[in-house]
């Protein structure tokens, strides 16, 4: 994926900031993951996951880290035909 990690981290943290303010923390984490799944190109999600794995989530907010760890399976790209 072409986007650099800095951009993805910034975007993820912005999204995380919105969902972190929602009343139900558990639901908010799931909604965060759903937002990325429904709005982000899978390559962007994959690149963010790669960043998470490579750096233990450097630069990501605590909420984003928790949400990604809790709902990692939603962020992985679906298998697709070549």
């Amino acid at each position: 994926m072409g986007m650099n990690a800095t951009q993805l981290i910034k975007m993820a943290n912005q999204i995380g900031a919105f969902f972190a303010s929602q009343p139900d923390p558990q639901q908010a984490r799931e909604d965060f993951a759903q937002h990325l799944k429904r709005q982000w190109d899978p390559q962007m999600r994959s690149a963010l996951c790669t960043h998470l794995d490579a750096t233990e989530g450097e630069g990501l907010s605590a909420f984003v880290l928790e949400a990604m760890q809790a709902h990692r399976e939603q962020l992985e790209p679906l298998a697709r035909p070549a």
């Binding site: 994926m1 072409g2 986007m3 650099n4 951009q7 429904r38 709005q39 982000w40 190109d41 899978p42 962007m44 790209p77 679906l78 697709r80 035909p81």
Partner: peptide, 23 residues
């Protein structure tokens, strides 16, 4: 045709991907 079931790139994502050489 078969259609993809995942979102594609937005304009800023396309531009970023172009910078990175993949778009």
């Amino acid at each position: 045709v078969s259609l993809l079931d995942e979102p594609g790139l937005r304009i800023p994502n396309m531009l970023a991907a172009a910078h990175a050489g993949t778009f």
